[in-house]
Amino acid sequence: MALSTNADFKTRLQSWLPKLVLSPSLALVLVFVYGFILFSVYLSFTDSRLLPSFGWVGWENYSKLWRLSHWEISLKNMGVFAALYIGICTMLGLGLAIFLDQKIRGEGMIRTIYLYPMALSFIVTGTAWKWFLDPGIGLENVIQSWGWTSFEFDWIKNRDYAIYTVVLAAVWQTSGFVMAMFLAGLRGIDNEILKAAQMDGASNWNLYRRIIIPQLRPAFLSAFVILSHLAIKTFDLVIALTGGGPGRATELPATFMYSYTFSRNQMGIGAASATIMLMTIAAIMIPYLYAELREKK
């Protein structure tokens, strides 16, 4: 900590050690994150196809991108997916947390069950739901074999509904985690305030609506930030569950980028789409991180 001009050598070394120790990580991040981001953004302005190339084409990739119906579809899907995924996870998470907060017997057990999907790979989740929702062998087949022969449930094969199966699997995987966040928030609320409100004659409904839920603001904010960033990054789940199909019905920006870059050899366009994804996440994350880090000082 202390150092000055006439410090002895060992003391000076000691004062440099911290920075020395931090520098490998910082160097890795500067090169592999920020350097790479610059490189990718640069590529999005070049005529790269199969391999990176450095012919400058200006905004051409972006204008091409916005004319592609494929991209338009993945953006629309993203909109539907993100809205439902964030909305349902938040409501479900909050509801379950409130229910679990009522001195429930076996709470620990229930919590463990709600949360375990978080430990699974999206590929595993995708595989399980893929076959469970498959009309040939899954739910539809089972119900029909139980005697309701006209029962139909083929959303995963249906262009209009397939995106909802992605929402279903994603909600299954993350809603327990959101529940845990809200539960921690609920447990952090001062019990005396609740007692005081009850003395004031507030009903349970009013207690939650007027006193408790408003105090969960930080949990709502964190849930929103985490869920939206997960939504934009969703990739594996779609690959395992639907492969982006049927047709392009479940393509998302992440799968779009992957297929344009690696299967269709349109690296410039792929890089342009990745840049747009980054900007979207940055618009959400940077203000959040900034506020969080400032607050801590």
Partner: peptide
């Protein structure tokens, strides 16, 4: 002895 810059342990 001037202590400026001397390590706490010294």
């Amino acid at each position: 002895n001037v202590m400026n810059g001397v390590h706490p342990s010294k």
